[in-house]
């Protein structure tokens, strides 16, 4: 597998990276942020950029920190770091659960949260948790930094709010401390893209669900927030019957893809079953 020839630059700062991205004209540029999706695409010659800009050498884009009431994850933080970080475990259990399921250990050590989000593969496992957890995505461009809510970030198949001359630098999450979480991933073999998955996190109050967030992976061209299900779950008893009833409409209005692993109808069925299981598991009921 040999990619078409391309130039390679590894800038040392965000400013330098932005300069490279804006200086292109007709030059096709791809940003390398871990490369676990980009490199196969290049090797299979599904893309042939003139220039690859590698963000790996820019200091300050990695790591996880507290910032007031927010937990901030640098865009170049690897899935492995996300999955093993104590702040993430304490405040963003859903993100941790999902990060643990990404591909295999090798990929988790190379692939990054920001790379996965900007690549925006609808079967990617981190999009739904980021959407469900109401993250804000900080994008840097020539005009400075702007912050986009997750609900506006994912715009279509492999398309996000990040412009061609911009880069995603950090992801800011409101704390979900004490929330239970489950990323219910459905695959045929362990190392496979999600056929469908459901990300759910709940705050319990007594035996009932006080608040819930639910989002779906691979049920459309972008991750989907199941807002009406979230409303139905608020105040819902944590029983199979009650949760089952609350999530019954989770697939309504979705246009899931059809492929070798299932058609749209089957994916809708999966979404309902997986949503029930995810919410119950997040609520501590298995």
């Amino acid at each position: 597998m040999i990619p078409a020839a391309f130039d390679y630059q590894a800038p040392a700062s965000v400013e330098e990276a932005l300069q490279l991205l804006s200086g292109g004209g007709d030059t096709e540029i791809k940003v390398l942020a871990g490369g676990q999706s980009l490199l196969p695409v290049l090797k299979m010659r599904l893309a042939a950029p003139d220039l690859v800009v590698d963000l790996a050498k820019i200091p300050g884009l990695t790591g996880i920190r507290e910032d007031g009431d927010r937990i901030v994850v640098g865009a170049m933080t690897t899935h492995h770091e996300v999955a093993n970080d104590p702040l993430v475990a304490e405040h963003l259990l859903l993100l941790q659960e999902a990060a643990k399921t990404v591909a295999d250990p090798q990929v988790r050590h190379r692939g990054t949260l920001g790379g996965a989000l900007v690549h925006a593969d609808p079967a990617g496992d981190l999009l739904a948790p980021v959407l469900a957890l109401d993250a804000e995505l900080v994008i840097s461009g020539a005009a400075g930094r702007r912050t986009v809510p997750a609900a506006e970030f994912f715009q279509g198949l492999f398309t996000t709010a990040v412009g061609e001359d911009e880069i995603l630098t950090e992801i800011r999450f409101p704390r979900h401390t004490g929330w239970g979480a489950r990323y219910e991933k459905f695959t045929r073999v362990v190392q496979q893209w999600s056929v469908v998955s459901v990300a759910a996190s709940v705050r319990m109050d007594g035996g009932a669900i006080a608040e819930a967030v639910v989002a779906l992976t691979n049920m459309g061209s972008t991750p989907i927030r199941a807002s009406s299900v979230e409303q139905a779950l608020a105040g819902c008893a944590a029983t199979a019957e009650a949760v089952g009833a609350a999530v019954a409409g989770v697939a309504e209005g979705t246009s899931p893809p059809a492929d070798l692993n299932g058609d749209a109808d089957y994916r809708r069925q999966l979404a309902v079953v997986l949503a029930r299981r995810a919410v119950l598991a997040a609520a501590g009921v298995s």
Binding site: R188, V189, V190, Q191, Q192, D259, L260
Partner: peptide, 25 residues
């Protein structure tokens, strides 16, 4: 499963779609 589409293109032409199990499976 080696699956071909109606044009005769192998659809399960990579290990993304041709599912070879690993020890974990």
């Amino acid at each position: 499963d080696a699956v071909f589409d109606e044009q005769g293109t192998l659809v399960s032409g990579s290990f993304v779609d041709y599912l070879v199990p690993s020890a974990a499976d």
